[in-house]
Amino acid sequence: MIEGFTALYIFMLAGFTGYEIISRVPVILHTPLMSGSNFVHGIVLVGAMVALGHAETDMEVLVGFIGVLLGAGNAVGGYVVTERMLEMFKSSKEAG
């Protein structure tokens, strides 16, 4: 377990990191970046897998199952649409 102040430090540093990464992003990338960050929180999938893996009762298994299903949708869907959008960004040179 990650406890007390260690957890707070991680929280703070990660918070600043996110802020810094985005602060210099050009407007042209706002939509793909929103989609990309949406993909990144798809990591919730691994948490859902652990929750389902520890589920005991039928109800817990059902809810865990829904969690993994939704988490997988977030991760896979987020990746596919972000990749599709970014694939199209080309400069004059690349476009030929």
Binding site: F11, T17, S37, V44
Partner: peptide, 28 residues
């Protein structure tokens, strides 16, 4: 929300990814 559940499960990847998106998303 992902970051908070990351704390509950003791999963650092979830905490970091969730918090980064939380703050980046707020700025966006």
């Amino acid at each position: 929300a992902v970051a908070f559940e990351g704390f509950v499960l003791g999963n650092a990847a979830m905490i970091i990814a969730g918090t980064v998106v939380g703050s980046a998303g707020t700025l966006l």
